[in-house]
Nucleic acid binder design. Sequence first.
DNA 1: CGACACCATACTGTATACAATATACAGGTC
DNA 2: GACCTGTATATTGTATACAGTATGGTGTCG
Lengths: 226, 226
Amino acid sequence: MILARIQKLSVAIPENLAEMLEEEIIFGRLKSRERLTEEMVAARYGVSRSPVREALRLLERDGLVMREARRGIWVSPMSQRDFDEVYTCRIELEGLVAKQAAESADIEKKAEFKNLLSELKQAQARNDARQFFIVDVRGSFLTYTLAGNKTLTRLLGGLEKQALRYRYHAYEQDPKIIQLSLDDTARIYDAITAGDGESAKAMTENLIREIWQSMRAGIRDAFGEG
Amino acid sequence: MILARIQKLSVAIPENLAEMLEEEIIFGRLKSRERLTEEMVAARYGVSRSPVREALRLLERDGLVMREARRGIWVSPMSQRDFDEVYTCRIELEGLVAKQAAESADIEKKAEFKNLLSELKQAQARNDARQFFIVDVRGSFLTYTLAGNKTLTRLLGGLEKQALRYRYHAYEQDPKIIQLSLDDTARIYDAITAGDGESAKAMTENLIREIWQSMRAGIRDAFGEG
DNA sequence: CGACACCATACTGTATACAATATACAGGTC
DNA sequence: GACCTGTATATTGTATACAGTATGGTGTCG
């Protein structure tokens, strides 16, 4: 999703717009509660309001913006409450997808995890947070692909992005949070590659729960309880 | 969602259109794989293509229609595979929502379950399947409201509808499947009202799993493995 | 000074017009 | 006859014009 969008803009403008806005929101260039007027977005990207409206519907679907009928659209507010919601859902669904991914027999795809892991380490070494998160998302999508459950992928797509907003914020506050993410991610990848569904699930659930707990106080301090 | 839409059509046309199309799809008047052209829908409901496009985006979000860029939109195909996907996700998420609903202290809302249950029994006695499912959906949304987890509600909204398609189909094949649904539903309501989150969760998971298994063969016979 | 009504403005919501693209079919070429 | 190419048509995708509504300010009245 993120990435790989140059020169694609000629087709599927709404999807591409949505991806670009997504990035703006995840990486905090569009801030929580900031208003988005259709005309502003249209002017900024040099298109008309029609594709903008559809792009905003897509963002709404993924919980990145909130619409109030006939009033407008705002970047979704962040709060500890929202964070809790996203993470309680993630625990269940990421656990399930890890289990189903582990049960896949697609050895070649599983081998990809090794490359991703080294890319993650490189990004971390270079202190390139943006790249780190982009690769991390690719890892998530690899997991989703392995699981081969389209419905689950659809649901997780809309959670992953919200989660990433919080994770990127946490990184900005304290860059060494990446270390935690990297260790966790490596362990998850290993569990999936090993092919033991039940333990992959349990590990994933535990790891996400850990991250959740470690980030929780900081989120409250930054955004309030909600 | 279903229901309560007469005279609201003046505002929020896309949402209302989506609800009506939703019903058409769930109750099988729009069949699996049937093509939907924007102009056809627009003409049928006496509106222009703009709100139709947005309504179709909403249906896409909930997995009820599939879009292929620049080719068109089709009612999502049903299959045992898709059914399995929806139900594996439902087990996790409905379990979670039941737990969180049980933990709510909103006694008045919980009391509503009693009324819903008697409505369900009436609908069953009258053999009014459509009404049965409509009330059942209201029960689900009451549970979601009690849980007070907007993110979870957003995710479940898109699963519930897909699930209902399969459940309505099963009903058409064999009307006494409603009996199973009623018993299950009553037990779930009781568990939530009792306020024991963990057991509400476990019960819900088991009950959904039971329904899943009982319907699975029939779904394969009707729609193929996928 | 406060409250209410009115109007201007800005924006969302809808309709329509236009552009671009996919599909089917006809005709030509090998 | 098989395959390719070009063109007609249907449908999606985008731009623009118009309608309706929420908001903020101004003025008037109590």
